[in-house]
Design a binder for these strands. Structure first.
Lengths: 339, 339
DNA sequence: ACAATAATCCAAAACGTTTTGGATGTCAAT
DNA sequence: ATTGACATCCAAAACGTTTTGGATTATTGT
């Protein structure tokens, strides 16, 4: 018993394939009685349209594409959270998600090409923008709608981002308010687009506060916990070590906390720590991690909504969304210190 | 400038569509010189085959389907971890993932039908089996290959599972070794397939140890943190409260820990706690959570491997894999107690 | 009675591939 | 010269849908 097609129903009912198709699609140029007849047969046969054929003919797939980076060992919480948000809204609008896991590089770009030029998707969601991002360059040369989480300098594409510069600046002020004078930064890899504004925010805040500018207090990590730990090690080994360490994501902050504890120091009392993102683990860390919240799930939802509007050719009120950062003060940043 | 198709290359090169197709596909009935010519033109035009058309014709899509449950509020860590594993291996073998987020129920089933009968995928990965699982019934009536994480009683389908009964039994013994006599269980919802063996393991262990059988010590949660907290509340309000609480997943265990702490009791000292899964948050909880490890990521990888073998019609050595549980003893289960 | 309109249906083309079953030409062996 | 083998090519069918542009009847208005 093979799968039923329009032809099967056509044979069974005596009507042409065209009429069957139009009856099922709800066109009004088919007699209500024959429509009922056809629907009844379709249900009896368990007819399910071949979506591949439909997509080929009708040029759209009701599918949103996403390429997620394959970070060798660990599953990336950030991406999974984003994925959930996008997937939820996509489903709400009748869209599915096509995922391809790829390590950044050549293969990754060809995954984009497969999806877009292979016309498997109606639009793409892209995240973790790089400084000169070949993927965005590629998409720009395409008729394909897309939206981006994050942005680089030249932002003539639809994006949603959290104002990282302002967030970091506020966090530096927070630590300064608490009496810290030597505040360190664990920066993201240079090639990531959000690195520049965050580092800039750091320097700007020091300037505003009249604090000295010490390049030794900025070390770069790779966003992993391990690299956060290594960075903290290095900072604490300095002749004049910092009293506060700001990491540019929560994972590195958690790594730093571990390193601090291993050294026999107390997080929050001896060394203050902050992160960026507010992943679920941040609140349940011990001590709970002070951080800058990015509502990743909600951003994912919004990205999907915007993308679907773009796909439908509807107007989008604001293509460049820059969200206000929200400081979440918890115990890891300690208490105001005297002196 | 429209997208290049075989026709474009055919016109450009003077060869027929057939020859272009066969040249690019690497058939040996085309002159090596013309093949080079055609490849060169294809590259110049940035030709990318229309995958929809290819799929329609060739009956396979190089895509694995997965329907993930839409738990209203939170993104489900378990599923995300599984997804990563499946996605990683899928990519390794040149497969993409088609995801549909759905709330369990009617819509969910029709998402399966869309994927399978709509021939959008070559195989399905299914997780979180229910006791009488309509999805499995549906897939059984289909020619579609599929693999399952978890299993119910009638296991005539390919699955991988962790031996929950044995795991729970070992954990009861662990607590008994530490001197506990009143050990409670926070069970999973009844309709989930893994509920029965775990509860069975609990009773079996009590029997083996000659401990009394007290139905009041088993309460059911819904896998969420909140329900774990509520369950713990109820257990601790008992006239003769338990000294150890075993939750059937980590999220409920973390909820129970929170409830215990709120009551002014100390986890590990006043009340021992254990979970199931070993999600990342388990290790970094405070105190770290004793649990039964499920290597979800690796299971995801293996599911994908098996599925792909099935799709290719290759033989699979073992279609029913039952993994040994691995106890991970951490501080939340406390110390051996005297008396 | 006749034209115009409305209601209902359908054949054929199109989407871009892959595959089938030769067709054509060349070359060596008889 | 004929045969067979080989190398190279291609027209046409097929996959299952949607859409286009009528065709056929039945109904209405004059």
């Amino acid at each position: 018993m093979k799968r039923a097609t329009l032809k099967t129903i056509s044979d069974e009912s005596g009507f042409s394939i065209t009429t069957v198709s139009r009856a099922l699609a709800g066109y009004d140029d088919v007699n209500e009685q024959t429509r009922q007849r056809i629907i009844e047969i379709a249900q009896r046969l368990g007819y399910q349209p071949n979506l591949t054929a439909r997509h080929l003919r009708s040029k759209h797939t009701n599918t949103i594409g996403m390429v997620i980076p394959l970070t060798a060992h660990y599953s990336d919480l950030f991406f999974m959270e984003l994925l959930s948000g996008v997937g939820q809204q996509a489903a709400q609008h009748g869209y599915d998600l096509l995922l391809s896991a790829q390590v950044p590089g050549e293969e990754e770009l060809s995954a984009y090409r497969r999806m877009v030029d292979g016309s498997r998707v109606d639009g793409m969601v892209l995240a973790r923008v790089r400084r000169h991002d070949a993927r965005i360059d590629y998409l720009k040369g395409t008729a394909q709608p897309y939206v981006v989480f994050g942005h680089s300098g030249d932002d003539d594409y639809p994006y949603i981002d959290v104002d990282g510069e302002k967030g970091i600046r506020q966090m530096v002020h927070h630590f300064a308010d608490y009496g810290h004078r030597r505040i360190a930064l664990i920066a993201p890899p240079d090639e990531l687009a959000f690195a520049a504004p965050r580092v800039a925010g750091y320097w700007a805040a020091l300037e505003e506060l009249g604090l000295p500018r010490d390049p030794a207090l900025v070390v770069t990590g790779d966003l992993s916990m391990d690299s956060g730990a290594a960075a903290a090690e290095r900072l604490l080994s300095l002749p004049d070590p910092p009293t506060a360490i700001m990491a540019c994501n929560d994972q590195m902050a958690l790594g730093a906390m571990a390193a601090i504890t291993t050294r026999g120091l107390r997080v929050g009392r001896d060394v203050a720590v902050s992160g960026f993102d507010d992943i679920p683990a941040a609140a349940s860390a011990s001590p709970p991690l002070t951080t800058i919240r990015q509502p990743i799930y909600q951003i994912g939802q919004r990205l999907a909504q915007t993308l679907i509007r773009l796909i439908h050719g509807e107007t989008v009120d604001n293509l460049h969304v820059l969200l206000e950062p929200e400081l979440v003060i918890r115990a890891s940043s300690g208490e105001p210190r005297s002196g």
